[in-house]
Design a protein around this nucleic acid. Sequence first.
RNA 1: GGUCCGUUCGUCUAACGGUUAGGACGCCAGGUUUUCAUCCUGGUAAUAGGGGUUCGAUUCCCCUACGGACUACCA
Length: 530
Amino acid sequence: MAVLPKYKSQVASFVIFAPLKKFDMKEVRVRFAPSPTGPLHIGGVRTALYNYLFARKHNGKFLLRIEDTDQTRFVPGAEDYIIESFKWCGIEYDEGVGIGGPHAPYRQSERKDLYKAYAEQLINEGHAYYAFDTPEELDQMRERLKAKGVATTQYDAFTRMEMVNSLTLSQEETNIRLNSGDPYVIRILIPENEEITINDLIRGEVNVHTSRLDDKVLFKSDGMPTYHLANIVDDHLMEISHVIRGEEWLPSAPLHVLLYRYLGWEPPQFAHLPLLLKPDGNGKLSKRDGDRLGFPVFPLKWTDPQNGEISSGYRESGYLPDAFVNMLALLGWNPGTEQEIFSLGELVQAFSIERVGKSGSKFDPEKAKWFNHHYLSQLPDATVAELLSDILTEKGLAVEMNFLTKVAGLVKDRAVLIPDLWDQSHFFFIAPETYDEKIVQKFWKPEIPPILKQVSGSIIGIDDFSTEKIDHSLKAFIQENGLGMGQVMNTLRLVLVGGSFGPGVAAIISVLGKEETQSRIERALKTLGS
RNA sequence: GGUCCGUUCGUCUAACGGUUAGGACGCCAGGUUUUCAUCCUGGUAAUAGGGGUUCGAUUCCCCUACGGACUACCA
């Protein structure tokens, strides 16, 4: 902090220090706090991404905390899945599960012992109470209210005095129940007749009247806190400055504000992100939509440990992580410029929470493909060759990198997803054994075999076996002999690749080499007749 | 049902009272090309409806409609 020179007046010091105040603010610390109940879907990845971008943009910290307070919903592998998804996307976190940090542990089940004291503090200060109602009794209460035509069947000011809790029981009775080991929960005591205001970074001011809130359970009978308590306690202890989370949390935000107040803590800033919607129709994007519409909903492939059900992932489908992240970032946020290709670093620079939209975004699989095609075609040939090499290895083929790099340069523009690379290039590695029937019908005329033999002969004479030289030579040959361009080129293509696809004929010949080209011509003459 | 949030081309979105309502994806057409793609050029297409406020509303306010989220001892 700069020392204020003595000669500056009071007024001047105010002017100078007012803007500096911003730098004085506490460090930006955000968290992504998933519950390990299954694979993280792309909506979750986007929430994590926005948290990450926000943290980096403000030189803050991004933490990963696992909210596993519901033991019944724990799914093995889910936590690793989240970490691996982050790695694939390039989202790095500074503290959290797997890497530790100053506020470890970062798994709520391992922090179990610390929550109860806060719940008890709330009780002691009259902001919470013990409740002994059984699930059956709760159901009955709701049924009773419904029968009476009451709209909100909640455990609230309207009903709490009819239930079994430390508000309706005497101190003695309560103690007896507590001491005898009766199961109980701890509920917040929502105040009556008060307007709670949340200042949301995305939505502005949101007001909710406490009469609409219910006495949510903070501490469960199994000894674990609920999300509501645990998230407030941990966010405070971990010094979280901004809570950036999905819109589905907006309705419970007033409750959280109340908890901060009762615990005597300063609440963080809130930002509730709009949801990702299904591409067709309406509603939140779900796992089923992917199966139904044929696109991945998850970053990585996931096999359900319970029933073995497989969900496809972007990685396995052949998307590049950069393309995936770029596409996701623009779904609900925009930079205010017309730029739409962003590296992760550029996203960090450009990101601002104010430019996140308010309304839900329908996910568009076509746009995702467009991004991937763009990224793939921008990749250096050598990098594409590596991708190709992995595919070949899987297929039991080994091809030298030099050759692969040439092939990569020719086919990368033609592929949308990584597997397309193979579809566009297989003939470079395996000579065609069959020929497209339609193309044969169309071009394999009696005059063709002698022409091909001549072409084969003329190729021998080319010294510099470059695409340009081959192209010239071929064109010259066609002209000299008064042949049709399409006639010769298409047949040659048929012979070399087995059909009507692929890069330019001259380029293919150049990469294939003299011998292979001639051998393929001979082979076709044998198969299709000379 | 109740509470809260939202609503610009088919989709993602820009325009923070004055624009021929802009861009991108998709789609269509044309061009390049030996095939198929790519690529290039052009085109199609939107302020949910109704009231206000204002000289002027996509923009501010209200109502309606529609959509969504939430409404567990789940997160």
